Simulated assay, not measured.
Amino acid sequence: MNNRRVSRISEEIKKELSEIIQYKLKDPRIPPITTVSYVDVTRDLSFANIGISVLGNEEEKENAIEGLKSSEGFIKKELGNRLKLRAMPKLIFGLDESIKKGMEMQKLINEVNHPGE
Rank of each mutant, 00 (worst) to 15 (best):
residue 1 M to V: 13
residue 2 N to A: 14
residue 5 R to N: 12
residue 7 S to K: 07
residue 7 S to E: 08
residue 8 R to D: 04
residue 9 I to Q: 07
residue 11 E to P: 06
residue 12 E to G: 04
residue 13 I to G: 04
residue 13 I to D: 04
residue 14 K to Q: 08
residue 14 K to N: 12
residue 14 K to W: 06
residue 14 K to E: 01
residue 14 K to I: 05
residue 16 E to M: 01
residue 17 L to R: 13
residue 20 I to Q: 06
residue 20 I to R: 12
residue 20 I to V: 12
residue 22 Q to N: 11
residue 22 Q to A: 15
residue 22 Q to P: 02
residue 23 Y to S: 12
residue 23 Y to W: 14
residue 23 Y to I: 14
residue 23 Y to V: 10
residue 24 K to P: 05
residue 24 K to R: 11
residue 24 K to S: 15
residue 27 D to I: 07
residue 27 D to F: 01
residue 28 P to M: 13
residue 28 P to C: 09
residue 32 P to H: 15
residue 33 I to N: 08
residue 33 I to S: 09
residue 34 T to D: 11
residue 36 V to A: 02
residue 36 V to F: 06
residue 37 S to P: 02
residue 38 Y to H: 13
residue 39 V to N: 04
residue 42 T to V: 10
residue 45 L to I: 05
residue 46 S to K: 14
residue 47 F to V: 01
residue 49 N to Y: 13
residue 51 G to L: 02
residue 52 I to M: 05
residue 56 G to C: 04
residue 57 N to L: 03
residue 59 E to T: 01
residue 60 E to T: 05
residue 62 E to K: 10
residue 63 N to D: 12
residue 63 N to C: 05
residue 64 A to K: 03
residue 65 I to P: 03
residue 67 G to K: 02
residue 67 G to C: 08
residue 68 L to G: 11
residue 69 K to F: 05
residue 70 S to K: 10
residue 71 S to R: 06
residue 72 E to P: 13
residue 73 G to C: 02
residue 73 G to S: 15
residue 74 F to T: 03
residue 75 I to Y: 00
residue 77 K to T: 07
residue 78 E to G: 02
residue 78 E to Q: 06
residue 78 E to W: 00
residue 83 L to A: 01
residue 84 K to I: 09
residue 87 A to G: 00
residue 87 A to E: 11
residue 89 P to M: 00
residue 90 K to E: 04
residue 90 K to V: 10
residue 94 G to L: 07
residue 94 G to W: 03
residue 98 S to C: 04
residue 98 S to A: 07
residue 99 I to P: 08
residue 99 I to K: 15
residue 101 K to V: 13
residue 103 M to E: 05
residue 103 M to T: 05
residue 104 E to S: 15
residue 105 M to W: 14
residue 105 M to C: 15
residue 106 Q to T: 02
residue 107 K to D: 07
residue 109 I to W: 06
residue 109 I to F: 14
residue 110 N to M: 09
residue 110 N to W: 04
residue 112 V to Y: 00
residue 112 V to C: 07
residue 113 N to D: 10
residue 117 E to R: 15
residue 117 E to L: 13
residue 117 E to T: 11
